[in-house]
């Protein structure tokens, strides 16, 4: 029996980790991430399902759900690529929820900040709008997909460079040996 002792998926983490994530926002961290990737161009063909407007707006929301602060967030993890990919996999229901919800969010945005798209607002303004909709199906769906894109296997185009795993303290290994944590180490030491 052939055994896989290393994750096939991890080999597929592409060198374009940060490249595609930098066009929507202009936070310094993201720009530096883009520079590290050595390329700032957006390749349209990289998105399989989302429109350009969806890409920038969903990216902006995802970046508030898991922001970039002392540690990388949804943007650096390429969450938007995950969302783009899975929405094409027989997820019409979720797709519609997102599209309808985005329209409503854009209307709410316009009412408060006339002439602006959601992604053009500052963080404080964005959070203000998101707090108002956090109990909606739309927010629940985009939160779910953002978290999925952050913490699922990189083979689905999110969680680039294991950014999500690192954030949690999760290491995807194929073998562990005791002690696993503090308490079993202590238990062994005391000979319980």
């Amino acid at each position: 029996m052939e055994r896989k002792l290393s994750r096939r998926a991890f080999l597929r983490v592409s060198s374009d980790a940060a490249r595609g994530s930098c066009f929507a926002l202009s936070m310094p961290m993201i720009l530096s991430a883009c520079r590290r990737a050595g390329e700032a161009a957006i390749k349209e063909e990289e998105f399989l399902n989302l429109s350009e407007e969806e890409v920038v707006e969903y990216s902006a929301i995802a970046a508030r759900i898991i922001p970039t602060d002392e540690t990388p967030g949804a943007t650096e993890a390429g969450v938007i690529y995950f969302i783009d990919q899975v929405l094409g996999q027989d997820r019409e229901q979720e797709r519609l929820i997102l599209q309808e919800g985005l329209k409503e969010l854009q209307i709410a945005t316009g009412l408060k900040f006339a002439g602006f798209y959601f992604h053009e607002l500052d963080e404080f303004q964005q959070d203000q709008l998101l707090h108002e909709i956090e109990d909606t199906e739309f927010f629940g769906t985009i939160r779910y997909l953002t978290i999925a894109g952050m913490f699922s296997s990189p083979e689905y185009r999110g969680n680039r460079d294991n950014i999500g795993f690192d954030l949690l303290g999760f290491e995807d290994r194929h073998a562990w040996a005791p002690p696993y944590g503090y308490y079993d180490a202590d238990y062994a030491e005391k000979g319980e």
Binding site: M1, E2, K4, A9, A148, S152, S153, E155, D172
Partner: peptide, 16 residues
Amino acid sequence: LQAGDFKHDEWGYKHN
């Protein structure tokens, strides 16, 4: 499916 087919794929197995 056999041992070599399985992977640590939370999205695929738990959500897809």
